[in-house]
């Protein structure tokens, strides 16, 4: 049995841990709210970009010489996996699930005889992948979007991917990130970035939208030229969206993890206090018995 002093200091330490976790939970909740707002604010741009790209791609469909970013390079030997994780830990299984998914995908691809490269966004993903895929990590971005996440951050990542693509370093690019569903649930999502997978025509859109996408647009300058400018832009938008979702998910996951930790600390304090009181009582009883038996012996 631990001594009273040990128990006391143990209780004190758990209490201060509890204070930290509950503060972190509060901070995560506040940040989550902001991240969610940011993600919502960014939605209109992505939607309109998608619509524009959809009508462009539809009008260019089947034509030769379309940008390889849209049509692909014609092979799929080298895969680039963009792994989006957080820079900081203490957020439950947030990073582990992403990395696990990346590992499964990578193993599957190498099993099929493909080459896999990684681009890590976020320190935690890089650190975990470095253990067994050290040579496959092409590049990594750390501390992105600190203090605030801006479009320029996403642009930077997109630029790097575009450069690599143009240099012929990979054929297919997949993004793995946590899609934000709610504070307690994040969904690991794979999204193919290059070649760009056109979203299915939204079913049940209002009539106005439907006629807009089938009608013939005029283009200024030429379709191909606009597409050339629009595709890298779209890549950045997709990455920006991924970053925002991932940030919101991170804070959600951290909030939940810290809530659990605070509760566990509470339970632990309860148990330790119980043991402490029992031990103290036992000691008092023991001392009394010693005194009494000592007196009786006289």
């Amino acid at each position: 049995m631990a001594s009273l002093k040990e128990l006391r200091s143990r209780i004190a330490s758990v209490k201060s841990t509890q204070k930290i976790t509950s503060a972190m939970k509060m901070v995560a909740a506040a940040k989550l709210k902001r991240a969610q707002e940011q993600a919502e604010a960014a939605r209109p741009y992505a939607e309109r970009m998608e619509r524009m790209l959809g009508s462009l791609a539809a009008s260019l469909a089947g034509r030769a010489g379309v940008s390889p970013m849209l049509a692909g390079t014609g092979k799929d030997d080298v895969h680039l996996i963009v792994v989006m994780t957080s820079d900081r830990g203490l957020c439950g299984g947030f990073n582990t699930t992403i990395v696990r998914r990346a590992r499964i995908l990578a193993r599957q691809l190498t099993g099929d005889g493909k080459t896999v490269k990684f681009l890590c966004v976020g320190r935690k993903g890089r650190d975990q992948l470095r253990r067994d895929w050290r040579d496959a990590i092409a590049d990594s971005f750390l501390d992105i979007g600190r203090p605030t996440l801006e479009f320029a951050n996403a642009d930077q990542v997109a630029q790097r991917i575009t450069d690599m693509f143009e240099a012929g370093e990979f054929d297919v690019c997949t993004l793995i990130y946590n899609r934000f569903k709610s504070a307690i649930s994040q969904i690991v999502t794979d999204q193919q970035l290059i070649p760009f997978a056109l979203p299915e025509a939204p079913a049940g859109g209002d009539g106005d939208e439907a006629s807009g996408s089938t009608a013939v647009y005029e283009y200024e300058p030429e379709e191909a030229e606009i597409l050339e400018a629009l595709l890298p832009r779209n890549l950045a938008v997709q990455i920006y969206r991924g970053l925002l979702e991932s940030t919101a998910s991170e804070h959600g996951a951290r909030m939940t993890a810290m809530d659990n930790a605070t509760r566990n600390a509470g339970d632990m304090i309860g148990k330790l206090t119980m043991t402490y009181n029992r031990t103290r009582q036992a000691q008092i009883t023991k001392e009394l018995i010693e005194i009494i038996s000592g007196a009786e012996a006289l």
Binding site: A41, A42, P44, Y45, F151, A154, P221, A236, V237
Partner: peptide
């Protein structure tokens, strides 16, 4: 008329005319 930046929807209103600086 809608003006959207990656960060947010900036303007959304009904107006008489918009003059846009096109590439050409």
């Amino acid at each position: 008329f809608e003006l959207v930046s990656p960060e947010q929807l900036l303007v959304s209103e009904a107006v008489d005319m918009v003059v846009v600086p096109g590439a050409e």
